[in-house]
Design a protein around this nucleic acid. Structure first.
Length: 242
DNA sequence: ACGGGAGGTACTACAGGAGC
DNA sequence: GCTCCTGTAGTACCTCCCGT
C-alpha cells in the first residue's frame, strides 16, 4: 500500500495549491463504504481534474496488481484452510506427481505427514508447512500487515508443530504479497537447524517449531528452490539425507 | 446430517538470560 | 533490581473429516 499511497500523494502534490486543498478537505471527512474507498476517490478526482488519463489509471492499476499478486492469500483468515487446503493444493498443482498417502500405500500412515512422492521405488514422505510474512509490529488484520519481499520491516514466521521423525523432507512455503518462495529441507537438516526449538503442546516429544525472522532468513537461501524444480529438489534433499 | 475431535497457523504469556 | 530480548509452551480460532 505504501507505494500506491506515495504515487497518489505525489500526483496530488503536483496539482495547484487550491486543488490540493480541495482534495485534502474532502479526504479528511471522507466516509467510505465498500467498494468505495480513499483510493477510488483520489483516482476518480485526478481523472476528473485531467491530472491523469485513463491509460495512466490502467498503468497504476496493473503495477499495483503485479506488486500484490498474492495479497488474496492473506485474506484467508482460517489457519487450517491456509495450511491444509491452500498450501497443499498449491503444491499439488506445482508437483502433480504428489499423492495423498493412505494406509494402503504406507501401512504405518496415520496422518503424520502430508504427501508421498514415489521415486525409484522409494516412498518419500513429505511434510508441507506454510507461513505468511506479516509486520510484527502491527496488530491489525493479516491483509493489512502483509509484507512485500523487499520490505525491511520486522517479521516473524513460526513453522510450528513440526515432527521431523515423521517425514523425510520438509517443503516450507513462504508467502509475501508479491512473491511465493519455497525452501526444501531434509528432516535431518530441519531438526539440526540452529533455529529449530524442540517442544510444543504440553511437551509433546519430537514436535518443535522453526523460528524465522528478518535476522536469519538469509541463512535459508541455500534451501531455496524454483517453483518448476520442486520435484527435483525434494528428491535431492531425500538422497542427501540417506 | 451432524457433532466433536483432530489438526493447521496466528498469536501471546511468561520464564530465563543478558546488559546496564 | 530493572528492562529488554529471545525462545518455549501454550491458547485461540477455525475448518476438515470421521464416526454415528
Amino acid at each position: 500500500m505504501d507505494k500506491l499511497h506515495k504515487k497518489l500523494n505525489d500526483l496530488i502534490e503536483s496539482l495547484s495549491i487550491e486543488k490540493q486543498a480541495q482534495i485534502r478537505v474532502h479526504l479528511e471527512d471522507l466516509v467510505s463504504v465498500h467498494p468505495f474507498n480513499e483510493y477510488e476517490y483520489i483516482i476518480s478526482v485526478l481523472l476528473g481534474m485531467d491530472k491523469i488519463l485513463i491509460d495512466d489509471y490502467y498503468q497504476i492499476r496493473d503495477e499495483y496488481i503485479a506488486r500484490n499478486m498474492y495479497l488474496y492469500i492473506f485474506e484467508i483468515s482460517a489457519p487450517r484452510y491456509f495450511g491444509e487446503t491452500w498450501a497443499q493444493g498449491h503444491l499439488k498443482e506445482l508437483i502433480p506427481d504428489l499423492v495423498k498417502p493412505t494406509k494402503k500405500l504406507d501401512n504405518d500412515y496415520s496422518g503424520q505427514y502430508d504427501f508421498l512422492l514415489v521415486y525409484d521405488k522409494k516412498n518419500i514422505r513429505i511434510e508441507v508447512k506454510a507461513s505468511r510474512a506479516v509486520d510484527l509490529d502491527d496488530h491489525g488484520a493479516l491483509y493489512v500487515k502483509a509484507l512485500a519481499s523487499d520490505s525491511n520491516k520486522n517479521f516473524w514466521m513460526n513453522f510450528q508443530q513440526a515432527k521431523p521423525a515423521c517425514c523425510d523432507v520438509f517443503v516450507l512455503i513462504v508467502v509475501w504479497r508479491d512473491v511465493i518462495k519455497y525452501w526444501i529441507l531434509s528432516s535431518k537438516e530441519f531438526e539440526q537447524n540452529g533455529y529449530y526449538s524442540k517442544g510444543q503442546h504440553r511437551g509433546n516429544v519430537g514436535e518443535g517449531q522453526l523460528h524465522i525472522t528478518q535476522d536469519n532468513i538469509r541463512e535459508f537461501d541455500k534451501y531455496l528452490c524454483r517453483s518448476d524444480k520442486l520435484r527435483d529438489c525434494i528428491v535431492d534433499a531425500y538422497d542427501v539425507a540417506q
